[in-house]
Nucleic acid binder design. Structure first.
Lengths: 228, 228
DNA sequence: ACCCGCCAAAGTGTTGACAGTTTTTCCGAG
DNA sequence: CTCGGAAAAACTGTCAACACTTTGGCGGGT
């Protein structure tokens, strides 16, 4: 009935299971990528037409997004895309520091030798010399691997399925700290070295400093903006 | 059409907003309290009849519970109440250690003097002498207050709305560590003392030891059970 | 010109019914 | 008695329609 579906993303559309599941993932991606502008009010009939489905599955997806705090809902007043704020970004970095610090600790304690070898390979491949900078993809892979090798599914899910996706929301924010390429690569190397030594305390401390550095850079930039 | 509604809990039924919201909270409570046995398969028609509503709002509530990981859903196979495992409990305690440690740190850095005074009053009231033991309610209030005074809404929500409720699920587990009354009260006192001194490092360390103590006691009990 | 109440249009919340799938049951063959 | 398979019951996924609420605009009164 709708000839102009898939107008928002001409990708493969064969997906998993139910319509509610599909639209949930597509909406999640649309929000995190900024395709749906923050603060926008969601009209259920309009969105349902756009995706070529009924309101039932759409509402189920919206309730899941609500629980993930990607949208806000109030009774009889509809849903709105969540609006990222500099304050929320600061909070996120502190939570991330705590969780990734623990992940690095567990990694040092429990990762297998094979996993550590893979970590080392990825880090040295990402920065073979002084001149090679760390790109965003390598950085994400590194943190993703640490989270996985912690052997704590609850912690891994929290980081990879909730915190890391949320970070994408804040990329457009003017206060989002740009990665410090060569410096970050060096810190990654030291974290892996601590894990290789099975030094849990050092691994956690290094990871926390690594995360905190981005937060502190951002706070410094904020102050400079205010006074400048 | 249903004369025997509310058969499961004869309480006040006037609640907030939509039916989906009400049934979401009631189901959440039912799962966490163990009223709905872990691992049980959920029949949507049966539950809908039991709560006197249609399947639509019920399904919306179920999708929210799925996102909270209180139930598991697979396409065309229905939903099941999540089953707590000793492994998941161990993971939970590690995540809690990381997050509450950070909360105590932020508390030491950012809590107002009035809030710290309230913390101190609550701790001394909970254990006026050596003989007075720490009950469960006082313990929960203490950790709840720390989470709140951290002035980090994202961290507070994670702890109070996700981790702490989840803990109730594991209370029935034979491996759940029973509180160490007088010892825990002493540790609480030391944490508050560190916060009063605005000693962020010490506050975090004390809180992490406090959480880790419960985890270690549990692991020790497990080993003893295996060998005994 | 401004404010207040009414009316229509749109939107959200809820329901019952229909289609496709899974699970159970039941019956006969081996 | 056990095993396999087909029919039937139950259940999940989906949809369109209905009831109630909110929103926007219009007209009348001040």
């Amino acid at each position: 009935m709708n000839d102009q579906e898939c107008q928002h993303n001409p990708e493969v559309e064969e997906a998993s299971g139910t319509l509610a599941e599909q639209v949930y993932h597509r909406l999640s991606e649309a929000i995190l990528s900024g395709e749906l502008p923050p603060g926008m009010k969601i009209s259920e009939p309009a969105l349902a037409r756009q995706y070529g489905i009924s309101r039932g599955p759409l509402r189920e997806a919206l309730h899941r997004l609500q629980e993930r705090k990607l949208i806000t809902r109030s009774a009889n007043q509809g849903a709105r895309i969540v609006k990222p704020s500099p304050e929320a970004l600061a909070e996120l970095f502190l939570v991330r520091e705590a969780l990734e610090g623990m992940a690095a600790r567990l990694c040092a304690l429990q990762a297998s030798n094979a996993e550590i070898t893979r970590l080392r390979a990825a880090v040295t491949r990402a920065s073979p010399g002084q001149d090679r900078d760390l790109n965003e993809r390598d950085d994400q892979d590194f943190h993703f691997a640490i989270a996985q090798y912690s052997r704590n599914p609850m912690l891994t899910d929290l980081l990879c399925l909730e915190l890391y996706p949320l970070l994408r929301l804040y990329r457009g924010l003017p206060t989002f700290p740009r990665p410090r390429t060569t410096r970050a690569a060096l810190e990654h190397e030291r974290i892996v070295a601590a894990i290789e030594d099975r030094d849990a305390d050092l691994a956690e401390m290094m990871m926390r400093r690594h995360i905190a550095a981005a937060r502190l850079r951002r706070e410094a930039a904020l102050i400079q903006t205010e006074t400048g």
